[in-house]
Write a protein that binds this DNA or RNA. Structure first.
Lengths: 240, 240
DNA sequence: CGTCATATTGACTTTAGTCAATAGAAGTGG
DNA sequence: CCACTTCTATTGACTAAAGTCAATATGACG
């Protein structure tokens, strides 16, 4: 059930049998969501944290001026609002990008784990820190990369994250983001996303068919994106 | 000594005498840095985490294309690289903005605290999550706010953070950032920062003299910035 | 079959960046 | 304390990246 959490945290530390058991025995409410539904809503103060088991989700904030900023994309294994355990109320929402399944773990149970299993506490800190590292990388893109590099960089990131959780098929993966949504994630207009994607395609770096993206040569794309191998090490398994 | 950490964590939970004592008895190397010196360097794997006791610091990354992105500003009480406890190597550097004093706590000691004091473990998670919330807010600015709002928003944020640690004097505080540095933080060119600042000044929202900024009317500035009261609650003390 | 979201294109506007030059302030070595 | 860099702020003129508006096309879906 929460097996996906075991796998995620195992990327950080080798878990003992007891620790694995602790995670497996976490009570959790499993819940399904349709595309576009909110898993967590801005302004609320959850008493449980949601672990994404299947599907994809995105973290976003709607602004007063009518725009939206998507701040993260989440794939199975991600603890979508672990921070709500310590920081409330939610300053943003999280919604399903495609039909998604979520397991919710009560905060009080997390607190219990913290007291009982320091190594798991540390693994949860790692998970928080990993999200933060991804935010930083996105900040760099939003602040200092042009549209072309920015999109290329996102595709590199997703390529490796998808591979990590076994969702890469050959050189391609599902990317259920429309161009307007891509724009909201990258701080661009939909039109400009369209044009930048065309440039990437005509440079042979990316092939798209519907919602599937193929990266013929990840090395080339990484070079074009200024994708940092150090960042790759962070988001990947240590020995990978 | 590490009194400043006690104060910071107290914003999250009421600490017991024993917990306070635990923090106070943390061994720490105190070290001073001159303006511009790196407190932590990209690519290294620190064995201690640095707590900023005095001065200011900024978190940044130099890109291959010659640009730089500043990802955070830190003021006394901030644990500048707590994440290096769980995530290594450093994917960015942290440098002193002005002469700064730092206290370093060995990671092994943090691990010890984690095992012994679950509530402190939780407080450290809060600190990580708070940094992440600030990253998210900056992402929103970089992606969806124009130069004028973006700078206004930063000034609002600093206004309240400075107040929090007692560094606000009347309506003004020290902002030891040059315009080029401001640009690196906000994803703008120095020239454009200059012009946006002029606009803020001529609108009467901001007064600058050397490195000191005065905010005559924080309400007005907040409105201009689209500064979210919810964000304020996060970065402020609960009952404030 | 009609509707709605998405993708694409062209024409035009706006924001922000670049390049250069000027000027003042700060810091440094002698 | 002076001469000299060097950093910083400011301005003008020009360029470039990205946004806006509008139209068309395409495709999924009920």
């Amino acid at each position: 059930m929460v097996e996906t959490l075991v796998r995620k945290l195992s990327r950080y530390v080798e878990l003992s049998r007891e620790e694995e058991e602790t995670i497996r025995s976490l009570p959790s409410h499993v819940q399904d969501y349709g595309k576009g539904e909110n898993l967590v809503r801005e302004g609320t103060s959850p008493t449980e944290s949601a672990l994404l088991m299947a599907g994809m989700a995105f973290r976003y904030r709607d602004l007063a001026n009518g725009t939206r900023q998507i701040m993260a994309l989440h794939i199975p294994g991600d603890f979508v609002d672990l921070h709500s355990f310590v920081l409330q109320p939610m300053d943003h929402s999280v919604a399903a990008l495609v039909p998604a399944r979520v397991a919710r773990v009560p905060h009080e149970r997390l607190a219990w784990v913290l007291g009982r299993h320091p190594r798991l506490a540390r693994a949860l800190m790692w998970d928080l820190a990993l999200d933060a590292a991804t935010y930083r990388e996105w900040m760099v893109g939003l602040g200092r990369r042009d549209a072309y590099e920015r999109i290329a960089h996102l595709l590199c990131e997703l390529y490796y994250r998808m591979r990590m959780v076994g969702l890469l098929r050959g050189q391609s993966f599902e990317l259920p983001l429309s161009q307007p949504e891509l724009g909201d994630a990258m701080g661009l207009s939909a039109v400009h996303v369209n044009r930048s994607l065309q440039a990437l395609r005509s440079d042979g770096l990316v092939v798209t068919e519907k919602l599937r993206v193929t990266i013929p040569d990840i090395k080339k794309l990484s070079a074009a994106a200024g994708f940092d191998p150090a960042y790759l090490r962070l988001i990947s398994k240590p020995g990978d």
